[in-house]
């Protein structure tokens, strides 16, 4: 992307970003390092280098433990639940929010403000305050410890967020595009599908990723609304135990944390190009 920022300013920005990168990356590296330590190395700092940071001998024991070992029955179903629940929640919320945001951005109808305010209000609501009533409700309607029982609360978290992001995105698309399509012979639906959706693709992907993270990282709902049939990874980690009752499951938890981070990283790398907007440049003058 071309900008008018001078070289000097750019160098300064680069220098300023270094501490921030270190600040955010070090905890992640630390998790990775810890997941590669053997039980012995975890307890004994002399087996590590860089001040107890990196193990001298890399051990894959923790990964074996969660994929094939004792923690297998806890971790693998949880990983599967995480994937199913989060993907479903993301797809549903993005589709719903796309239509809703398009209506909000383009049409004038009574109650438009109300929808936006309600969406904002819902996302302000503390998650922990919702859990108890949902728990009671879910138990009586039989949604407790089911996949849909988790998807629905996640929608409550992600739909308002998606509506806000997408509405802002749709508003940026020049309305002339749509009018031109209509004059060219398109119905409203064709104009939406052939012109607006392709133009909004970067926004839709950005929204999808944010919605996915929100659901993927949730702990409170998963911990309280599931027991074994739908429990996702963040909550499952809390139930890890060590090899004996005297060992902490630190290494296994870290290994699991690394594993659940990988899809997120892949997603971002995959859609990085789509997220970078600027697709609309050239639609209109300048």
């Amino acid at each position: 992307m071309e900008t008018n920022v001078s070289n000097k300013v750019r160098n300064w920005l680069a220098a300023a970003s270094v501490p921030i990168i270190i600040w955010t990356v070090i905890p992640l590296l630390w998790i990775l390092a810890t997941s590669l330590k053997s039980d012995a190395a975890l307890a004994d700092s002399s087996q590590n280098v860089l001040g107890n940071f990196w193990p001298k001998d890399i051990s894959w024991d923790n990964y074996k433990l969660i994929f094939t070992g004792g923690a297998k029955d806890l971790f693998l179903p949880a990983l599967w639940h995480s994937i199913v629940v989060c993907l479903s929640a993301t797809v549903i919320s993005v589709v719903l929010a796309t239509f809703c945001a398009y209506a909000i951005a383009r049409l004038t109808f009574p109650g438009k403000k109300l929808i936006l305010t309600t969406a904002l209000g819902v996302s302000f609501f503390p998650v922990i305050a919702m859990v108890t009533p949902i728990f009671n409700l879910w138990r009586s309607v039989g949604l407790f410890d089911t996949i849909p029982g988790l998807i629905i609360p996640y929608l409550a978290l992600t739909v308002p967020l998606s509506i806000w992001i997408l509405a802002a995105f749709f508003q940026q698309i020049p309305w002339e595009m749509e009018q031109a399509a209509q004059v060219d012979g398109a119905t409203s639906w064709q104009a939406f599908r052939k012109v607006i959706v392709p133009l909004a693709a970067p926004g839709v992907f950005t929204t999808a990723i944010i919605a996915f993270f929100t659901a993927w990282n949730d702990f409170v709902f998963s911990l309280n609304l599931t027991s074994e049939h739908a429990r996702t990874v963040p909550a499952a980690l809390a139930f890890f135990t060590g090899a004996s009752q005297f060992t902490q499951p630190t290494g296994a938890i870290c290994a699991a944390a690394v594993v659940v981070t990988i899809p997120v990283v892949i997603l971002v790398l995959l859609f990085q190009k789509r997220i970078v907007s600027g697709l609309t440049s050239g639609a209109v003058k300048g």
């Binding site: 002339e176 209509q182 060219d184 133009l199 697709l279 440049s281």
Partner: peptide, 29 residues
């Protein structure tokens, strides 16, 4: 509706479809 009037319009800011090539832009209608 505009689509049923069979008129062609050139907009002030052109309103080209940025995701389509020039060929597809012209072929769109």
């Amino acid at each position: 509706a505009p689509r049923d009037r069979n008129l062609a319009m050139v907009f002030q800011n052109y309103a080209l479809y940025p995701h389509l090539t020039v060929f597809e832009n012209i072929a769109f209608p």
